[in-house]
């Protein structure tokens, strides 16, 4: 369902940085992929391109058979809204929104009644065990709780693809395991999951581990 062909990404702030070089990657529907690699190797860049949050400098990207690297901004926005859910590297919660409001953001563009949005957001919060924090401001909860809220935001919308950038980075190993159980459950329900991690124990939950170094994929391992 996800297919990257010779994807390159360059940044031009100051000097040119080649963050991704000739990346080729196929991810099947329902697959659970972990991405590993040193800091600055290009993991987030890869995730952003797959999530239609950024465009490759060259190469082609097909999502569900459609070419999206050159699609209009409106179309990519629709794809993000319908198919893709994100867990950002540093949670990216809006501090003075409540936890519930944060979780509801990806539901705002969906044509469902407000009541259902609240219901679905609360259910997602329940799944990560922080339903009782729903009415608290995001600024007022702990790092671990923020991480869960960020995960709840990704699971609340019924996107087929979940892209998670170090979703267990702020959690102790026990909470990390709980979160991974949740991802495994979601994966069993048919969701495609791509997850960045530095932790080999976390990567062990995935079907496949991809290792990136200096913008290139250097290893595709099956678990």
């Amino acid at each position: 369902m996800i297919e990257l062909k010779n994807i390159c990404k360059e940044y031009h702030s100051g000097g040119a940085v080649k963050a991704l070089k000739d990346v080729n990657l196929k991810i099947r529907p329902g697959e659970f992929v972990a991405v590993m690699g040193a800091s600055g190797s290009g993991k987030t860049t890869l995730l952003n391109i797959i999530g239609c949050m950024d465009r490759p400098t060259s190469g082609e990207y097909f999502l569900g058979g459609c070419k999206v690297d050159t699609a209009s901004a409106g179309r990519t926005a629709r794809i993000r809204g319908k198919k893709i859910a994100f867990v950002f590297q540093h949670f990216a919660l809006i501090e003075d929104y409540t936890v519930l409001e944060n979780v509801m953001i990806p539901l705002l563009k969906q044509k469902i009644p407000q009541k259902d949005r609240v219901k679905r957001a609360l259910k997602a919060l329940e799944q990560v065990g922080i339903a009782d924090l729903a009415r608290k401001k995001a600024a007022d909860i702990s790092g671990g709780q923020k991480q869960r809220a960020a995960i709840a935001r990704a699971t609340a919308c019924s996107a087929e693809i979940i892209l998670a950038d170090e979703p267990t980075g702020a959690l102790d190993s026990e909470s990390g395991r709980q979160v991974m159980d949740l991802f495994c459950r979601l994966n069993k329900q048919g969701k495609t999951i791509m997850l960045i991690t530095h932790d080999a124990n976390i990567a062990a939950f995935a079907h496949r581990v991809i290792t990136i170094s200096d913008g290139r994929i250097i290893k595709y391992e099956k678990n």
Partner: peptide, 16 residues
């Protein structure tokens, strides 16, 4: 900025 980014990740367009 971050907020707008998150909204866009949730399907909002630049124009929204």
């Amino acid at each position: 900025q971050k907020q707008y980014g998150v909204f866009m990740a949730g399907g909002f367009t630049h124009w929204d």
